[in-house]
Design a protein around this nucleic acid. Sequence first.
DNA 1: GCTCTTTTGTAAATCCAACTACCTAAGTTC
DNA 2: GAACTTAGGTAGTTGGATTTACAAAAGAGC
Lengths: 396, 396
Amino acid sequence: MSRRSGSAPATTGEVLHLIRTGEAATRADIGRLTGLSRPAVALRVADLMDRGLVAEDTAGPSTGGRPPVRLAFNAAGGTVLVASLGASRTQIAVCDLSGAQLARTDLEIDVERGPGVVLPLIMDVWADLLGDRPAAGVRGAGLGVPATVEFAAGRTESARVMASWTGVAIPPLVAARYPVPVFVDNDVNVIAMGEHRAAYAREVRDLLFVKVSTRIGAGVVAGGEVLRGALGAAGEIGHIPVRDGGGVLCRCGNVDCVDSVASGTAILRDLRAAGRQVATLADVVTLVRAGDAETMAVVRRAGRLLGEVVASAVNLLNPAVVVLGGDVAERFQPLVSGVREVVHRRSTALSTRSLRIERSRLGEDAGIIGCALMVTDHILAPDTIDATPAREPAHH
Amino acid sequence: MSRRSGSAPATTGEVLHLIRTGEAATRADIGRLTGLSRPAVALRVADLMDRGLVAEDTAGPSTGGRPPVRLAFNAAGGTVLVASLGASRTQIAVCDLSGAQLARTDLEIDVERGPGVVLPLIMDVWADLLGDRPAAGVRGAGLGVPATVEFAAGRTESARVMASWTGVAIPPLVAARYPVPVFVDNDVNVIAMGEHRAAYAREVRDLLFVKVSTRIGAGVVAGGEVLRGALGAAGEIGHIPVRDGGGVLCRCGNVDCVDSVASGTAILRDLRAAGRQVATLADVVTLVRAGDAETMAVVRRAGRLLGEVVASAVNLLNPAVVVLGGDVAERFQPLVSGVREVVHRRSTALSTRSLRIERSRLGEDAGIIGCALMVTDHILAPDTIDATPAREPAHH
DNA sequence: GCTCTTTTGTAAATCCAACTACCTAAGTTC
DNA sequence: GAACTTAGGTAGTTGGATTTACAAAAGAGC
């Protein structure tokens, strides 16, 4: 990673990385991989064990001599507080250091009540979810919010549905009660990162995540990092126009935005116009299951229109994978087929040569997992580990 | 940069960075900024002077005591070989370490003759251009090629106009004669990086460069880095379709690709269809100067159509600046106006809040400058400096 | 011209981190 | 169960880089 390529000795953070990735399972492995001497390895491992990040596992199998003590990343060595705020629902959880959920509650909170109400509520839920787990074990907090976020400061810039949240710096509010690093990002960015890290990180460094739900948004992972843009507004594909949209007026004032012709809202509208009795997406699912031709056609057309925009994005970004998520994409195979059809027709040959277009693997857990990984990614990064002293230099 | 934020002492590379950026101009400055002791500073500066990267300048003004010896980045401390290969023309130059051109030749080479012919020719020109300058002073080489490039290996993947160049790993071929680091990238990426580093780097980290010439392409700088995508094909916007293109058949087989309706080729075709006698873009320039209404309309329409694609890209990437380059964009103000008009109408409010849309500042030098900066960026990066020993440990 | 201030250089001392060398632990193999 | 093999720990030594302390250079101010 950030190793000074020459011959600088491996740092504690790099040793943790070897253990986390499974490249090294014993002290001897670490010595072989890094070229570090036994004492140096022992020092770093002891440091990591002091911090609770690494644990000695059962003894491994002998290969003819003393069996090695297996080292493993200690996911239980700390907890991460996460919350994924949505327009309709907020998911709140406590995760371990691997991002696995230890406890979770989904709440119907009216986010419009503003950060002064919602954040304390979330923090109370965190306290509940922590239960007996020591508060000192909390290593960080991560929130995904349906707004544009200036990531470095964790400040919401412009909220799509939460006017009361515009311009709020969230980390200080959380850190006042939980004095740990706090990370905040846009909800779709968080999901994109979650999908990437949890399902694709080993194979892929460039991923486009498209969320199709009530609205349409995207998150871009480029070169392994979330692409945020100048104001944190990257990925706002909802108001890119499509061709042959039929002249639908979008609430943004333009016509034929992909949001207005291919979102869940648009599908419901089109089905009602076709005389179908659909109140919610669940009704659409029923019609699809029943094999209703009109419904299939509407969904597939939405997929094709969305595919146009995805094709443009594929040409521009050249991702290795396009992941379609959000409740609409996750439930409707015809939509995914429609996207595939158009992308392979309209993107350049090179961009689609090895392009995969898939449905979300994480589903509705993506937000929670993404938030947790956003935190652990920073907290366990070699640079962060190396910048943090092993233990307090002076006690006072 | 990659400084282990804690309290690790500043490295030689970081000291060079301070001097290059002008943050520190004397040894005392460096001591103050880094917290390093005088001997430690002296050691690093001596190292940099040994390498020829830093030179003692005139003595600075005294502030009441001994006047400081001013330190300056020594751009003359080495040379960089650069070449920007184009379909119609190849620019070849020798630059100093600041990217300034020391000598340059533009050639009409038929790149189709293949790397076996063209590369030796370029290397001969470099030898000519170097003249009396010592070959040992060559620190690196950089090439921009009109092809998709796998950057890490410097291998061309898919060549747009140069079938004979497909799948060629260029660095070994150059390094055989000039044993220095060799960097190769797509021509538009190189120009985008050049514009960013040379004109915008201090203010902006996200930039979209669009080249409008015979064809249309783009280079993306995201978070200060060139975005390359999974196969190095990012930025291929030429075959994104526009709405209301009129059903023009593009050579890619689809209709209404922006390349087929807004490129230089398309403008010439449309003017001819309108009865204008235009052989080259120079004729179009004449007509624009003469204020020909039809010509203005055609160019402006091309701008508007291009603007649609740029607007989509702006929504997706949220750049701080859009730079329009290539000979068409550089010569035709109406095209730029057309882009501006549509982008501000069709991109989301947040993305355009502080968006600037400008013509290239570097013009036809962009390729050369970009190539030089691509090399110096790597060669002078703190990590590279620190990974390179000061002088040979053993002579043999 | 003398003193003060600021900058830079040099040498001895110190500190920190890693290494070598030696030792113990705990298996397998015969 | 004796010898071999591999893993892991400990202590003194070594090496490199940095710092402190001491000096010297070079101009400003009086």
